[in-house]
Amino acid sequence: MTVYDTARDTAGDTSSDTRLEDATIAYSKAPSAGQPVLRVERLGKIFGDQNLAAVAHTGPNAGTEKSPDGNSVVAAWDVSFNVAAGEAFGVIGESGSGKSTVMRAIAGDHSSTAGSVWMQRRDGSTVDLLTMTASERRALRVDELSVVYQDAAEGLDLGVTAGGNVADRLTAAGWRNFGQIRERAAELLGRTEVPLERMDDLVRTFSGGMRQRVQLARALANRPPIVLLDEPTTGLDASVAAGVLDLIRSLLEELGIAAVVVSHDFAVIEMLTTRCMVMQHGRVVEQGLTDQLFEDPQAPYTQRLVAAARA
């Protein structure tokens, strides 16, 4: 399988058959790369029968992620990438390409078949998220790793007020002073541009764009070093999506939070990320600097995607 390396050294050899692990090494030399806060190594997830033999018969070359016997789906395989502190990394691909699988594996929403996800913790130690217990991961989600879901109902309690949804994360982190909780929730909702007069309304009564803003406020409540954004603006109408994107970008920059942004939408990846990777049939087909990747796509699949988006 060929992985195209868009962030290639233009003066040097640009052998196009660089294996994924080599490509990963190449990225650690990328100009913006600091100490990685997240290091995904050869992550793999097979749904259905855990049949490793299915891997050889799937992927872009096979043109499918489903095993020949139909009993396994290799949703993601051999996925590796680094995210530096404060950096936004994009994962792009069409529906079923495995990008959400990668995100859910990192978030701990489901178990993984192979690989590791190393994360640098606040105390400087490094842990493999995939070997943590479910309750350890939930603890991590309180203040070190937040997720913003496409469907706000997954990330929010719709029967609770906007302020209450933010308060949930604060109380989980041990806040016990009502005045401070209220103040902090108002501050966060203010930053994510939720009108304060709506702070005490149930999220169920909110529009899609407003719900995403509440999700953002909740995700940022305890200032996590890493945020995962899964299609954060999909399903919003264009003008609302643009506003939410603007907000995400400025917040990430301002707070210096590292992000993994998953989207099928080029505009989202282009606006938010400096580096990204393209997935197809559960594999990474190309990764590199976002600008270069869109200007000069190497993989045929990426070329088709870019052409379709530019059309």
Binding site: D157, V160, G163, G164, A167, T171, A172, I181, R182, D200
Partner: peptide
Amino acid sequence: ARMWVSLYEDKVR
């Protein structure tokens, strides 16, 4: 946490 949220909501409302 959600028990605390219910108290928060009670006080807010």
